[in-house]
Structures are given as C-alpha cells and as structure tokens.
C-alpha cells in the first residue's frame, strides 16, 4: 500500500491557501478582459479595468486580491489504496490552513460558533468534503469563499411540475435579488436534482469548473447559455452600478432525484473566484 505523510498534505494546503488568494485564475482574468470589451456602461468598464489592475497588483506583490480571503472549503478525493501516516487527514488540512493564513498574511474570517461569534484567530476549521474513490492518490481542491457572495446563495425545493421554466426563474430571481451584494460580475453555480444538501454541494462544485466550459449534456449546456443571457439582461452590471456584464459564467451540475422532488441550489461566486488543486503524491497525476 502506498503511504503519504500528513506533513506533506499540510505543506501543500499551506501553499494552495496562499497561491489561490494572491493569484486569480487565468480563466477568470480572460473572462473579465472579454467582459471589458462587451460592457457598454462607462462606470462598468471603469470597474472592470480596476479589477484587472487589482488582480495584477495582487499577483505581482503576492498579496491577497480581496481582503475577504474567505472560509476554506476543501474537496477531498481520497484513493482507497492510499494510506495517510503521521496524523489524521482533517488535522493535516486544518494545520495547512492555519500556516497558510499566517504565512500569507491572509485575513482570519472564521468565528467559533454562529451565535457566540468569537474569531478562532487562525481561519480554521475548514469545511471539508471527502469522497473515497478508487486508486492510490489524494486529490485536494481548495476554494477560498468570501461571505459577500456566499450569503446571496439559495436553495429551493421545487415541485417536478415547475419544470425547466421554474428552475430558470428561481435562478434568475436569486441573481436579481442579490443585486450588487455578491460583487458582480459573478459566477453562478447551479445544482439541480439530488436532495436539499446534495443540490447545494453540486452547486458549489459547479463553481470549480474552468469558466465557460459547458455541461456535457446538450440540454443543460443550452440552459447555461440561455441563463447567462437572461442574467446579463438584468442590467445589474459590474458592482451593480448598471451594465451588461452581471455574470461571467453559469455552470450547471445535475444528479438524479426522488420522483416527488426537484431541488435547485444556486451558489454565487464573486469575480474573485479563487480555487486550486493538487494531486498527491506529486508526480502521480492521472
């Protein structure tokens, strides 16, 4: 059996925390540049220009692109033939978050209890979703999620009779109600099907797809295009000051569901869509 030390996991999580917060992904930068060309509102173009300038300063100075360096969400895909030694997986991840947020001068934005609300001081605990898969590797995907956009997310248990139109309406209404709050231009992650909690989870996973890669199913790919058009017709625009570029992308993920259910979840990401992955042991990329 192949083994992987917990220390190695901590080291990689530390690197990822700093890396994703300081370097906005090239797919996002490309999408913002494209939005700048399409935007007709002068204030909107000014905003997009400042975002691009900001993101290049952050990368150059290795400093956080946004002060809200988020709560860390970790998607773990653990191969069942890999053994982790020298500590538990969740301790190793949280230690990586602790070190990354300290060494990277990133903001600590986590409180111990939802009502007590004392800052834990090290941005832990992370939210960890673990999936056991075949094979002997560990894939870690980290997302730094700010609250401005997370707070505008929603889940609704629709009735099967609401159908595709009901689903689209709920998604567009959620973005309209969010307005300027989630820092548009946004990325819209949608989960359709499953149960209340799994719809929410796939909506968040939809945010991890490289921007504007389409759902493999033709029906959902067409829905993504149609929704992006409808959302960009809302007029919210960059930062909500009015304009055409409200969303950079709409990504839908789906799963099977109960005969009586049609769950829909919308998870919104701000323009600073921050995530990154590593596969361990290094050099064993599939």
């Amino acid at each position: 059996m192949i083994s992987l030390s917990a220390d190695k996991i901590t080291k990689e999580v530390t690197k990822l925390c700093i890396g994703i917060n300081c370097n906005i992904g090239s797919d996002v930068i490309r999408a913002i540049r494209k939005a700048l060309k399409s935007e007709t509102s002068p204030i909107g173009r000014d905003v997009l220009g400042q975002i691009l300038k900001n993101d290049s300063i952050a990368a150059r100075d290795n400093t956080a692109a946004c002060q809200d360096t988020g709560i860390v969400i970790v998607f773990v895909r653990l191969g069942q033939d890999l053994r982790i030694t020298g500590g538990s997986l969740s301790d190793a991840i949280n230690e990586g978050v602790r070190q990354g947020y300290k060494k990277g001068y990133l903001r600590k934005s986590v409180v111990n209890d939802p009502l007590e609300r004392t800052n834990t001081g090290d941005n832990t605990p992370a939210v960890i979703h673990t999936e056991i898969v075949s094979g002997k590797k560990l894939e870690l995907t980290l997302m730094a999620k700010g609250a401005g956009s997370e707070n505008m997310s929603a889940v609704r248990m629709l009735s099967p009779s609401d159908g595709e139109n009901g689903v689209k309406k709920f998604i567009v209404d959620t973005v309209r109600n969010a307005g300027a709050n989630p820092c548009p231009p946004i990325v819209v992650g949608v989960g359709i099907g499953g149960t209340a909690e799994s719809a929410s989870l796939i909506a968040k996973k939809a945010l991890l797809r490289p921007l504007n890669t389409r759902n493999k199913n033709r029906r959902y790919a067409a829905m993504e295009r149609e929704l992006l058009k409808q959302i960009n017709n809302l007029g919210i625009g960059p930062q909500g000051f009015g304009g055409r570029m409200t969303a950079l992308a709409v990504h839908i993920e789906t799963m099977s569901c109960h005969i009586a259910s049609l769950p829909v979840a919308v998870n919104i990401n701000c323009h600073a869509a921050r995530h990154g992955s590593v596969i361990l042991p290094l050099g064993r990329i599939k």
């Binding site: 400042q50 975002i51 400093t63 820092c183 701000c270």
Partner: peptide, 24 residues
Amino acid sequence: IGGTAALIAGKVKKVEIVAYGDLH
C-alpha cells in the same frame, strides 16, 4: 469597488487601531 483590496491598500497612508482591538 469590492474585490479590489490590493489596489485600495495602496491608497492607505497610515493605520491606527482606536477601539475594540479584541475584535482583530
């Protein structure tokens, strides 16, 4: 402009905590 915190930081010339330091 939300999400331009690296840019805005460059406009800040001085910082001093004046109350509630325990709030980090």
